[in-house]
Structures are given as structure tokens and as C-alpha cells.
Design a protein around this nucleic acid. Structure first.
Length: 483
RNA sequence: GGCCCCGUCGUCUAGCGGCCUAGGACUCUGGCUUCUCAAGCCAGCUACGAGGGUUCGAAUCCCUUCGGGGCUACCA
């Protein structure tokens, strides 16, 4: 019987979770859900100088917001916890000692300076830089001499001669000659574990069956496998590896803070919908195989398979994200749209949040829904509905300063004031009869003037609907004010 | 430098030997629609990095080359 799939997302939160992390998390999640397996969420915080509690909390919050949930990990717990590596130090110490006792690992007394000097020499000689094995077979005398010098040893894993061969689901068979995989450090001189130790130990102990991660970790796979072997794991129990292609920035290097917006928090603030971000990211390095591009989270779990993941890197394209975001916004029900838009309107200081204010926003949402691509555009579109008067943008003001515009506005007031029913139909009928049929004006000229007077801008939601929502009194007084 | 990964329109991709004079999406350009802006609809531009093979036949397989990226820490 096939083992139950157990994937894991194991970030090292040294900052806000970024787009690349999320793409990985999304694939891990989708694969677990697709197979009916489990997603384990683990925090790799062995380097506590760089990982803070704030970042960890933010990572959890971001994942939840995106709709990525986990079966084991922080908050939910699980049978293989704890899920923060900083709380698993005893476990790593145990294995470090075991490796040392078994001779799989050894103490290395070389200083950082010595190592660096030798690496430089290797590089200069066109050799593969890496640990030269100086401390592999130290005699008792040498060791005591080093100890007397006050040197503190790091724990280094012994890489035997030979090669490591494994099948990456995305890249096929990959082989690394150990000549290019030097003995690597497992634990610092102070005994604290490094990623190389912790990641492998945890994947084994947490019974991870599939490791989907960034391709930058491809070359560290032989080291990880070496640890599995030292732990006594049988080859058939090794996890399956799948190294995901990078998400690249505009300059075609791995997406980072330097070449694009990477923080998911930033995208959230800009008004991108979580389902749009996930949909877009899912399409970066993966496709369902047909021409579908609008994919919900549920559909993703149904369609996602690792063998459909691309091996080549994908460039992040903000334009496409915006297009998808616009589609998702248009697909929202009005109530849902309202809930999502409200925080942006409040943050802009347009409303305080009374039920009355919400009702006004809700009334205008249908006519602006297809006009925005991001939620942060909502405030600008709805603000004309608040306040008695309206301040007219300077650029627009110039367009209604001429005498013809004044005439249009004045006559408009005259036909609007007698109206007994104030609906967009009645308003349009009155204005059309006057300006288009009566005065023979071009609609864009005639309605443009009224639009500026009423909304304060030459760009606005549909005019007649806007006037209806604004109410007769305010609409007319604004027109008068502009004359 | 060494090792590894990657290479289809500007971008994301479909394609896994004939269905490809290479399809879709985003972008861009033009048009239609139209009260502005959008949305929508239609049309157009633009790609198999190069060179060798294998084969009746290659975007698809192999080799070389060029190009891009990653790794090369007591970071992850």
C-alpha cells in the first residue's frame, strides 16, 4: 500500500513571507490536498539571530489569509511536534552525538580564517572550493593540541567517496559526484544545529514523503540524503524530491527585494485578493494542461499534480496578476465585495464605518466593480458620494471653465430641478432631451461637463447612476456650485 | 573558476515524433460598442537560441555550442 502523502512547507521567516515562498507553500498545500495527504508546516528557526517571533506570527497570518491551511504545525500541533526547530534542539543534539559516535561525523577544529584561506587557494587553482578534509582523521595528539589552543570544534559530516543519485520528480535523475560535495558542517562550535542537520532529521522524524521546495536547494540534496543514511533510513523510505523552478524578478534573476515587490503583505495592502494571488502563482511553473487560467483554490486541489510542474523558471508579471485580480473582483458577490473593500475605504478616511456609510458604499459597488483591478482603487471611486460639495480636480476644472460649459450646467439645473422622480432613467431622459436633442451637443462634451461638476473628475462611474445615488439635492447644488 | 539546473511569442504557458504554415492568456497596437473610465467583442504584431545529427518526418530524441540562472557559509 502506498504511504500517505505528507508534504511540508518549512520556511525560515527572516522577513515577510515573499512571493516565492508562497508559490512553494501553495504547491505543497495543493499536492497534499490533491492526494488526500497531510501538509506539515514547520518553522526553520535554527538561526535565531535572523528569525524573529514577529516574522513567524506574520507568516502564519499570511498563510491563513491566503487560504493555505495545514494539518500539523504551529497552532494546530500534531503528533510529530514541536514544529519550531528552535524547540527541537535536544533532538538534534541526540543525532549529532549519534553521528559522532558512529563515525559518520567528526570534530573539525579548523578556524574560519583557515578555511577561508584554503578555499581561496582552491579557487585560485581552479579547483572545486570546499572543505579539504583536514580534520577527518585527527590523531589524539593533534586533538589535544587543538583543545589546548582553545579551539572549539564544529561537527562535520563525512561524505564518503562515490556519488549520490536520486530521482527528482520534476527534473528526472540527478547525480552528484561526492568530489563536489565536501564534508559539511552539521552543528556550530557552540553545539547549535545548522539547517543541514535539522532539515534532514525533521523530515525523517515528521515522516515527510514528498519534499517540494525551491530549486536552490537542489544541490544540497546529496547532503540531506547523507544524513538520512546516517540515521539508518532505508532508501525506499527516503522522501521523494521535487525541486520547483524559481520565480524570477524583472531582471531575470531570482525574485528578491531588489528586483520587484516580493512581500505578500505588500500585495495585500495594494488590494490584491488572496484567491487572485494564489491563482496567479499557481500558473507560475504549473498549468492544468488545457487553456484554463481561472482556477479556484478548490479546483487547484483537484487538478494539481507534480508531473505538470515546469522545470524552467518563470518571471513574475505584475500586469498579469492585476488582470487576474480584476477578474476575481468582478466575480465577487456585492456583499463579499463590500466586506473586502470596506477596510480600504476606512483606511482612506472616507468613512468611519457606520451602517449608513456601509449602505452608501454598497449602493455604488455594482457600478464600480468592473472599473477597478485592485481594491485600493475603491476609495477614489466612491469618495464623491460623501460630503455636500466636491472639490474639482484642477485638470478637470479647466475643462468646464469656458462659457459653453457654464451654459450646459445652467440649463441642466433648469431641467433637473422640476424632476419629480430622481432615477438614472429620468435624469438621463431629461439631460438627453436638453443637451443632445435640444442643443445638438456631442454626448461626451455635454455629459462631460455635468460629470465634472457632480463628481469632481472627468473620470467617474456612470454619470446618471452616480447622480441618482448622490441624490437630487446634492447633485443640483454641485452643478450650481460649478457654474 | 568548479558543480548543478534551465532554454517555445515581450511575459506566463500548451505541445511530450506526424493533429503545428505552433494553440491559449497577459501586455501592446488598431477597430467596434459607448455619457468619461472601465468592462465586453473583433482583428493584428510577435516565438520553437544556434549548429550538427537520428528519422520517411523534430518544437518534440541525441550531441555540441551559446545564453540565462542557482549553489559554492559555523545562512536557509
Amino acid at each position: 500500500m502506498a504511504r500517505e502523502v505528507r508534504t511540508r512547507f518549512a520556511p525560515s521567516p527572516t522577513g515577510d513571507l515573499h512571493v516565492g515562498n508562497i508559490r512553494t507553500a501553495l504547491f505543497d498545500w495543493a499536492y497534499a490536498r490533491h492526494t488526500g495527504g497531510k501538509l506539515i508546516f514547520r518553522i526553520e528557526d535554527t538561526d535565531r539571530d535572523r528569525v524573529t517571533d514577529e516574522y513567524i506570527a506574520a507568516a502564519i497570518e499570511t498563510l491563513k489569509w491566503l487560504g493555505i491551511n495545514w494539518d500539523e504545525g504551529p497552532e494546530v500541533g500534531g503528533p510529530h511536534g514541536p514544529y519550531l526547530q528552535s524547540q527541537r534542539l535536544d533532538i538534534y543534539s541526540h543525532w549529532a552525538k549519534t553521528f559522532l559516535d558512529n563515525g559518520d561525523a567528526y570534530h573539525c577544529y579548523c578556524s574560519t580564517e583557515e578555511l577561508e584561506a584554503r578555499r581561496e587557494a582552491q579557487r585560485a587553482a581552479n579547483l572545486a572550493p570546499g572543505y579539504d578534509g583536514a580534520c577527518r582523521n585527527l590523531s589524539a595528539d593533534q586533538i589535544s593540541k587543538y583543545v589546548e589552543e582553545g579551539r572549539k570544534p564544529v561537527l562535520r559530516m563525512r561524505m564518503p567517496d562515490g556519488e549520490t543519485k536520486f530521482t527528482d520528480v520534476i527534473r528526472g535523475e540527478v547525480v552528484f559526484d561526492h568530489k563536489f560535495v565536501p564534508d559539511f558542517v552539521l552543528a556550530r562550535a557552540d553545539g547549535s544545529p545548522l539547517y543541514t542537520l535539522a532539515v534532514a532529521v525533521d523530515d525523517v522524524l515528521m515522516k515527510i514523503t514528498h519534499i517540494l521546495r525551491g530549486e536552490d536547494l537542489l544541490s544540497s540534496t546529496p547532503r540531506q540524503i547523507r544524513v538520512y543514511q546516517a540515521m539508518g533510513v532505508a532508501p525506499e523510505d527516503f522522501p521523494v524530491f521535487a525541486h520547483l523552478p524559481f520565480v524570477m524578478g524583472q531582471d531575470n534573476t531570482k525574485l528578491s527585494k531588489r528586483n520587484g515587490e516580493v512581500s505578500v503583505a505588500w500585495y495585500r495592502e495594494q488590494g490584491f485578493l488572496p484567491e487572485a494571488i494564489c491563482n496567479y502563482l499557481a500558473l507560475l511553473g504549473w498549468s492544468p494542461g488545457d487553456d484554463r487560467e481561472n482556477i479556484s483554490m478548490k479546483e487547484l486541489t483537484e487538478l494539481f499534480t507534480v508531473d505538470r510542474v515546469n522545470s524552467s523558471p518563470a518571471r513574475f508579471d505584475m500586469k498579469k496578476l492585476e488582470a487576474i485580480n480584476g477578474d476575481k473582483i468582478r466575480a465577487l458577490s456585492i456583499d463579499d465585495f463590500l466586506e473586502r473593500a470596506l477596510p480600504f475605504v476606512k483606511a482612506a478616511g472616507i468613512i468611519a464605518g457606520s451602517d449608513e456609510d456601509k449602505a452608501v458604499i454598497r449602493s455604488v459597488l455594482p457600478i464600480i466593480q468592473e472599473r477597478i483591478a485592485k481594491l485600493n482603487e475603491v476609495p477614489q471611486m466612491v469618495k464623491f458620494l460623501f460630503g455636500e460639495g466636491v472639490s474639482i480636480e484642477s485638470e478637470s476644472l479647466a475643462k468646464i471653465s469656458d462659457s459653453q460649459s457654464k451654459e450646459i450646467l445652467a440649463k441642466s439645473v433648469a431641467v433637473l430641478e422640476p424632476l419629480t422622480t430622481w432615477t438614472h432613467e429620468s435624469i438621463e431622459a431629461a439631460l438627453r432631451a436638453l443637451l443632445i436633442d435640444g442643443m445638438g451637443l456631442k454626448p461626451r462634451i455635454a455629459f462631460g461637463a455635468v460629470r465634472i461638476a457632480v463628481t469632481g473628475s472627468h473620470i467617474s462611474p456612470p454619470l446618471f447612476e452616480s447622480m441618482e445615488l448622490l441624490g437630487k439635492t446634492r447633485a443640483i447644488s454641485r452643478i450650481k456650485a460649478a457654474i
